[in-house]
Amino acid sequence: MNTVIHKAETRGHANHDWLNSYHTFSFANYQNPERMNFGVLRVLNDDSVQAGMGFGTHPHDNMEIISIPLEGDLEHKDSMGNVTVIKEGDVQAMSAGTGVTHSEKNKNNDREVKFLQIWVFPKVKNVTPKYDQISLKDIEKENEFYQVLSPNKEDQGVWIHQDAWFHIGKFDKGNSEQYKIKKEGNGVYAFILDGEVEIDGQKLSKRDGMGIYDTDSINVKATENARILLMEVPMTR
Rank of each mutant, 00 (worst) to 15 (best):
N2Q: 10
V4F: 12
I5D: 05
T10I: 13
R11E: 06
H13F: 12
N15W: 12
H16Y: 14
H16D: 13
N20P: 08
S21H: 07
Y22V: 00
H23Y: 14
T24R: 07
F27C: 08
A28S: 14
P33D: 06
E34I: 03
E34H: 03
R35L: 15
F38C: 00
G39F: 07
L41E: 01
L41N: 02
R42L: 08
D47Y: 04
A51F: 13
M53I: 02
G54E: 00
H60V: 00
H60I: 00
D61H: 13
I65D: 10
I66Y: 02
I68L: 09
K77F: 11
K77T: 12
K77R: 15
K77I: 09
S79I: 09
G81Q: 10
N82C: 13
V83Q: 10
V85G: 05
D90V: 01
V91H: 07
V91I: 13
Q92T: 00
Q92C: 05
A93W: 07
A93E: 02
M94D: 02
A96Y: 03
V100H: 06
T101L: 14
T101M: 15
H102T: 04
S103I: 02
N106C: 12
K107W: 09
K107Q: 15
N108L: 14
R111T: 15
Q117D: 07
V120S: 04
V120E: 01
F121G: 09
N126Y: 11
P129I: 00
P129A: 00
P129V: 00
Y131N: 00
D132R: 14
Q133A: 15
S135V: 01
S135Q: 10
L136P: 03
L136R: 04
I139Y: 10
I139E: 08
K141C: 08
F145I: 06
V148L: 04
V148Y: 02
S150G: 15
P151Q: 01
P151G: 05
P151H: 08
N152E: 03
K153E: 09
E154I: 08
Q156S: 15
Q156N: 15
G157N: 02
A164I: 06
H167I: 05
D172K: 15
G174P: 14
G174C: 11
G174R: 12
N175K: 15
Q178W: 03
Q178P: 02
Y179D: 04
K183N: 12
K183T: 12
E184R: 03
G185W: 02
N186V: 05
G187N: 02
Y189I: 02
E198V: 11
Q202K: 13
L204Q: 06
L204N: 00
R207I: 00
D208Q: 03
M210Y: 08
G211M: 07
I212C: 11
Y213Q: 13
D214L: 11
T215D: 04
I218S: 05
I218L: 12
I218G: 02
K221W: 12
L229Y: 06
L229C: 03
M231F: 14
E232F: 12
V233H: 06
V233I: 09
V233R: 03
V233C: 10
P234N: 08
M235P: 07
M235H: 10
T236S: 11
